[in-house]
Simulated assay, not measured.
Amino acid sequence: MTSPTTGRLRVDGATLHYEVRGTGPLLLLIPGGTGGAAAYDGVADDLAADYTVASYDPRGLTRSPLDDPEAGQSVARHADDAVRLLDLLSPDAPALVAGCSSGAIVALHLLTTHPERVERVVAHEPPVVEVLPDAAEHRALLARVRDTFRREGLMPAAAVFAAGLRRPGDPVEPPAAAELPPQAAARAERTMADMSYFLGRIVPSFMAYTPDVDRLETLSDRLVLAAGADSRGELPYRPAAFLAERFGTELVHFPGGHVGLTTHPAEFGKTLRAVLSA
């Protein structure tokens, strides 16, 4: 794996850690969950053969500390961070952008608010549950997660959250986790330190976010909605499928499930390359 060039960028209320590889048009990779820039380590080197590949730790994660550790979080603020990175790394040309999960929500907001900065967006399973007809059920899930977090702590709340993401009828207990490559396993261990921040402040804010669907529809020629081939029926899959049907566009299936970037990095990167060059 090639060592990236790293940098620090001051933004409003935080300092962002970012990483850059390769040359060519800018491809900004927006991480989801607690993965940070390292979430894309399995695909970044290959993509850097054709692109200047940049990723970063979103504000509040370990290497991107907040000035105020208790500051509230919003999709708009995180999208503004992405704009600042685009301005730094590609000031004169629109960029390609790809995001996974909560990072895909940021990418959607970026497209609707700064379309002049974006050539194409790939949004893999953005959990914008407010677009769904049964959104009220998912608000109730978030309330249960919040209440469990307050009463019982992080791990019980994480279990409630995970159960709410599964397909209806799936067993409450998850199947045995797939064995991850050593680097991915190490990342998973490191990012556990950020789980409290993610579940306590990112999830409630981001999953309550309602995208400007009409605006997205007018920009749908620049938007690729994507989902995991193995996650059909799961909650994070459904908003991408719903929006693709509404816009009359293809829902592109990537290898694996919601975390296919981690479990199938080579195949995920190959699909992302194909989508970007289509």
Score class of each variant (00 low, 15 high):
Pro255Thr: 08
Leu199Asn: 01
Leu86Gly: 07
Arg120Cys: 07
Tyr51Asp: 02
Phe149Gln: 14
Arg222Ala: 07
Ser196Ala: 15
Ala98His: 10
Pro204Tyr: 09
Gly164Glu: 02
Glu70Pro: 08
Thr15Leu: 00
Ile30Tyr: 11
Glu125Ser: 09
Val20Leu: 10
Tyr18Cys: 04
Asp87Ile: 00
Val97Ile: 14
Arg273Gln: 11
Thr62His: 13
Ser277Leu: 11
Ala177Val: 05
Ala95Lys: 05
Arg144Ala: 06
Pro181Tyr: 04
Gly248Ser: 09
Leu235Thr: 14
Pro174Ile: 03
Asp214Leu: 05
Glu267Val: 09
Gly99Tyr: 00
Ala186Cys: 05
Val118His: 07
Ala244Thr: 00
Tyr18Pro: 09
Ser90Gly: 12
Ala37His: 07
Arg151Tyr: 00
Leu276Glu: 05
Val118Gly: 13
Glu137Ile: 05
Pro133Asp: 08
Glu245Gly: 02
Gly72Cys: 06
Ala44Arg: 05
Phe254His: 01
Ile105Gly: 06
Gly42Thr: 12
Arg215His: 11
Arg151Leu: 14
Arg117Gln: 10
Asp194Asn: 13
Pro181Cys: 12
Ala136Trp: 02
Gly7Ser: 05
Ser74Cys: 11
Glu217Ser: 13
Ala184Asp: 15
Gly22Ala: 07
Val160Ala: 00
Arg215Ile: 03
Thr262Met: 14
Val252Lys: 02
Arg120Ile: 13
Pro25Cys: 02
Ala159Gln: 14
Ala177Gln: 15
Thr249Asp: 11
Val131Met: 03
Ala229Ser: 14
Pro211Asn: 09
Ala95Glu: 01
Glu119Asn: 12
Leu142Phe: 06
Arg10Met: 01
Pro265Lys: 02
Thr5Gln: 13
Leu272Ser: 01
Phe247Asp: 04
Pro168Met: 04
Thr5Pro: 10
Tyr51Gln: 05
Arg150Ser: 14
Arg77Thr: 15
Arg151Lys: 14
Phe198Thr: 03
Thr148His: 06
Ala37Asp: 10
Ala176Gln: 15
Arg117Ile: 02
Leu29Arg: 04
Gly36Glu: 07
Ala14Phe: 08
Tyr237Asn: 03
Glu125Thr: 00
Pro255Asp: 08
Pro255Leu: 03
Asp170Phe: 00
Pro175Glu: 07
Val97Glu: 14
Ala244Glu: 11
Ala140Leu: 14
Gly7Glu: 00
Pro156His: 04
Val259Ala: 00
Glu116Leu: 10
Ser196Pro: 12
Val118Ala: 12
Ala186Leu: 15
Thr271Asn: 11
Asp50Cys: 05
Val172Asp: 01
Glu119Leu: 13
Val145Arg: 03
Leu27Ser: 02
Ala266Met: 10
Ala193Ser: 15
Glu245Met: 08
Ala178Phe: 09
Leu47Trp: 06
Gly24Lys: 11
Ser277Arg: 12
Ala135Cys: 06
Glu19Phe: 03
Val145Ile: 08
Asp212Trp: 12
Ser205Pro: 05
Gly153Phe: 01
Met1Ser: 12
Phe242Gln: 12
Leu251Cys: 03
Val275Asn: 03
Ala159Thr: 10
Glu267Leu: 10
Ala143Phe: 03
Ala37Ser: 15
Pro127Lys: 06
Phe161Val: 06
Pro4His: 02
His264Val: 10
Phe268Thr: 05
Ala177Trp: 00
Asp92Ala: 14
Ala14Glu: 09
Ala186Lys: 14
Val275His: 01
Asp46Gly: 10
Ala37Arg: 01
Asp212Ala: 02
Gly22Gln: 00
Pro156Leu: 02
Arg77Met: 14
Pro175Gly: 11
Asp80Val: 13
Pro181Ile: 02
